[in-house]
Design a protein around this nucleic acid. Structure first.
Lengths: 164, 164
DNA sequence: CCATGATTGCAATTATATTGCAAATGCAAT
DNA sequence: ATTGCATTTGCAATATAATTGCAATCATGG
């Protein structure tokens, strides 16, 4: 430990870059590791802040570009969500998302029972690789505050935005 | 016909506004109708352009605000997608989305077989209202061009962005 | 160690979304 | 119809997010 490099994670990056004929730069290593370490769905700026702690001169633009590169290569993913800032995740194995309609918080959901969804057939014209389910509702915190305020609590409380 | 008002759609708007104690303005009517008529997932600007044809002085800001208002009231929805521009849809009945990873095109998918997904239990802490499935893959056009270019067609073609 | 093509950082630019405030509007009560 | 009042609208300014061109730098293969 100490350098944050040469970890199990780092090894994976070298393989990925070699397979795609991409030069392995320190920035690429740092950005991918920062995303791998996160359990949430960080924005570009959140990743940038993380990486800057060990690599203070990295440019925000570089982070944008690296994330786009690896997204195109399917190494990471943009999280499908209703917001207007891009969010990324490193988990490409199948999992699902819980979205709070009130505060925007989004959490991962693993559930083997949801692995059996029937893929749509050829009539769609799409060649489907994978899927994920978005469950919409209220997170525990928001459900509680709505209950406290009474069922007719209307367009009142609105602002937070967790979206972790 | 001719005025574009007083249609079946218009009637619904009056009811919605009354139920939510919202003044029914011409702008609200026009924006909601424009979205109802669309079968795609338009951006704010696309809706603005539509509405401007019959209401040339409507402000873009107003369109932003109206869409937000009705989203909060669950009359319409923001489409969950990987992009960075807000997209809206008027269909709030259950349906799913096909997303092309190459060009960004997104289509609706209706499939009654997909209505049986088991909702996650209480352990999530979420109070779930509904769900939708995002299927990822290649649209017919992109699948075809990738085939033509050969399986190792790499970070080549990249730009389009249909996202209708 | 060098040559070469790809990547990076920077500054400028574009795209998208939000805010404060005065004027205009919808609606309910007269 | 007219009035009163809270809400909405339009505008201009501002904030936030993402993209681009280009010179300097770096990774990799020989």
């Amino acid at each position: 430990m100490g350098k944050g490099e040469g970890t199990i994670l780092g090894a994976g990056i070298e393989k990925i870059c070699r397979e795609h004929a991409l030069p392995l730069t320190a920035q690429r290593r740092a950005v991918l590791e920062a995303l791998w370490v996160r359990l949430t769905h960080p924005t570009v700026d959140e990743i940038w802040e993380d990486v800057r702690r060990t690599m203070p001169d990295i440019s925000r633009t570089t982070v944008y570009r690296i994330l786009e590169t690896f997204t195109d290569l399917r190494v990471i993913r943009k999280v499908p969500h209703p917001g207007t800032v891009a969010r990324y995740e490193s988990r490409t194995s199948r999992h699902h998302h819980l979205l709070c309609l009130q505060c925007g918080r989004m959490e991962d959901l693993d559930d083997a029972a949801l692995d059996k969804v029937a893929l749509p057939g050829k009539e769609t014209g799409f060649q489907i690789e994978d899927y994920s389910i978005q469950f919409r509702g209220l997170c525990s915190r928001c459900a509680r505050s709505r209950q406290a305020a009474g069922p007719r609590a209307r367009a009142a409380g609105k602002k937070s935005h967790a979206h972790k």
